[in-house]
Design a protein around this nucleic acid. Structure first.
Length: 318
DNA sequence: AAGACGAAAGTGGTTGA
DNA sequence: TCAACAACTTTCGTCTT
């Protein structure tokens, strides 16, 4: 029953078809996010991309990389990896360190061969499902325009879940989707459950189940999403200016000081704050428009916006 | 006609016995 | 496991611009 989201501003989102040279230049000169207008872009040379800290949009890829092409997570890795082998990444199923095993059948009995094959069969099926999970995480992260660091973190989390034998007997899709959802929350670029569900191949129920299960089993703490986290993305989807964005954030801050946000859904609060801010700033959007983008109903927007405007003494004149 | 409003009933998730 | 509960949705009639 969720209305399909209109793909507004297709042109200003990050383009894949452009040449590397153009993008490298773009990465050097662009100063603010074309999606939400935020100024704090993060340049990740390790992943050769430029992404927005506010909404998580990948602004440019293949930017000029001034650092070494390998990554190191501690000193030991630095010394070992300085000039040997391919770069290691968690997004490749065997961490990119593959081993080629040659087999010489001379003098080996049938029995041993069989056992070896059984073992490798088990290894290869779990490996295959892991590869599948990673490709799914990548696909979904791509569709949601999430930065590479979130994809990396998701891969690491999935690996961890696998080590603790949490995947076996559960749907890979469900777990992978839940993990992506968790990582987004942890990195402060939350996507709504509806958004995640729309690009996943499993239903909302299964995602929620996997989500709760993983939080419990992995002892993860996920702080409730703040309404503020949703503002940049929603504002840009509504074609609202940066002025409205900061107004909305301001309203949310005042609301949370007065504890008007307690027990309320963060998305509804964000939607109402944006609705109010847009009217105050002379860029009126209808409740329906806001509702379509945020996924909360007009009724909820009305209820929240009544509360906010009354309690914060904001005169909203239409 | 479109947008805003609000009442009333329904839904899905959480909590606590 | 079940019922109570709050937040949110659906639906729909009415008012306003």
């Amino acid at each position: 029953m969720v209305t399909p989201k209109k793909d507004k501003g297709e042109g200003k989102q990050h383009k894949d078809g452009k040449g590397d040279k153009d993008e490298a230049d773009y990465g050097e000169t662009v100063k603010e996010c074309p999606e939400c207008g935020a100024k704090n872009l993060i340049r990740d040379y390790g992943r050769a991309e430029l992404f927005c800290a506010e909404c998580g949009l990948v602004v440019a890829e293949n930017i000029v990389d001034l650092g070494p092409e390998w990554r190191a997570f501690d000193f030991e890795q630095v010394s070992k990896r300085a000039r040997v082998g391919a770069p290691m990444t968690y997004r490749i199923h065997d961490k990119g360190l593959s081993t080629l095993v040659t087999w010489s059948p001379t003098g080996q009995g049938q029995y041993k061969l069989k056992r070896w094959q059984q073992r490798t069969h088990i290894a290869s099926t779990t490996e295959r499902s892991f590869i599948f999970a990673l490709s799914e995480i990548d696909r979904m992260a791509c569709a949601l325009k999430l930065p590479m660091n979130i994809r990396e973190a998701s891969s690491m989390l999935y690996r961890k879940a696998m080590k603790q034998r949490l995947i076996r007997g559960r749907s890979i899709e469900g777990i992978a989707t839940a993990i992506l959802y968790i990582t987004c929350r942890q990195y402060g670029v939350p996507r709504t459950l509806e958004e995640v569900r729309d690009i996943s191949r499993v239903g909302q129920k299964e995602i929620s189940r996997a989500y709760r299960f993983l939080l419990r089993e992995l002892n993860l703490k996920v702080t409730p999403a703040s309404p503020v986290d949703f503002v940049p993305r929603f504002c840009s989807l509504l074609d609202l200016s940066g002025d409205i964005r900061s107004k909305a954030v301001e309203i949310i801050k005042r609301a949370s000081e007065r504890e008007l946000t307690n027990g309320r859904g963060p998305i509804g609060i964000a939607a109402a704050a944006i609705y109010i801010a847009a009217i105050l700033g002379g860029e009126h959007r209808t409740q329906k428009q806001v509702s379509d983008v945020t996924g909360v109903t007009e009724v909820t927007i009305r209820n929240r916006y009544k509360e906010l405007s009354e309690q914060l003494d904001i005169d909203v004149l239409l």
